[in-house]
Amino acid sequence: MANLSIRSIANSCLDVDPPLSVRRDVFGYIWGTMNRALSVKSHLQRIKGTSHNLCLILVGHENDFSGQFDVADTRRMQAGVDVMRELYAQVGIGVRKLYWTRIPLADANGHTIVNAAGATDLTEEWSGDNDGIDVFFVTSVTDAGGWSVRNGPCDKDAQGRTGAVLELMGSDQVMGVLMAHEVGHYLGLPHAGSLTNVMGDDSDGDGIGSINAGSVDLTGAQGNTMQSHCSIQAAC
């Protein structure tokens, strides 16, 4: 078993040094405690392997929670990330760094409630650092749970949609499945034709995949596709 020292992994994989808060600095969970059990050992194994980072962008958020999201909302986003981490671990992909950022309400420019066209406008106007896949949290997506682009670019200055756009929805589990689904598209996955798969079912052919809390499977072939995306970083 490889060395799983928190300090050494925090330094080599996350660029953080002591004093460390494991929850905040190693998991990246800055929004307080969640009703989920965290395994430090599993997490370190995951982020030490091939991984990607996430730029989590809260649209219309204020630091004093007077904007679009309250404390419970941010904790649900955080729990969603934790669910997504478990789902991606099935195919050996870690979610390493979380860059939590916000678009102030005054700058949100009507992007708090979007449809497919609005999601494109939002990601064409804003983007996080190229080091991670952009995941925008909006108050509502009116024509789906979220929108992404298949096999999205790693250069955020590329034209078109350069991130995933999600609404805050359902339970922690649903939030995590939705996040894994939309980021899965970004990493190159199409809809799967199975409701038990993270990439869901689109048997009606409208381009919107159906998923639910039980859409948790990822196959080895899907993992191979994800692993080949430009945002996947080597083991650290």
């Binding site: 600095d25 730029c55 950022t101 916000r102 678009i103 102030p104 983007s127 996080g128 955020k156």
Partner: peptide, 13 residues
């Protein structure tokens, strides 16, 4: 070269 995008603000840890 395209015009630069806007960058969101970091949320304090």
């Amino acid at each position: 070269a395209a015009r630069p995008k806007r960058r969101p603000l970091a949320i304090p840890r």
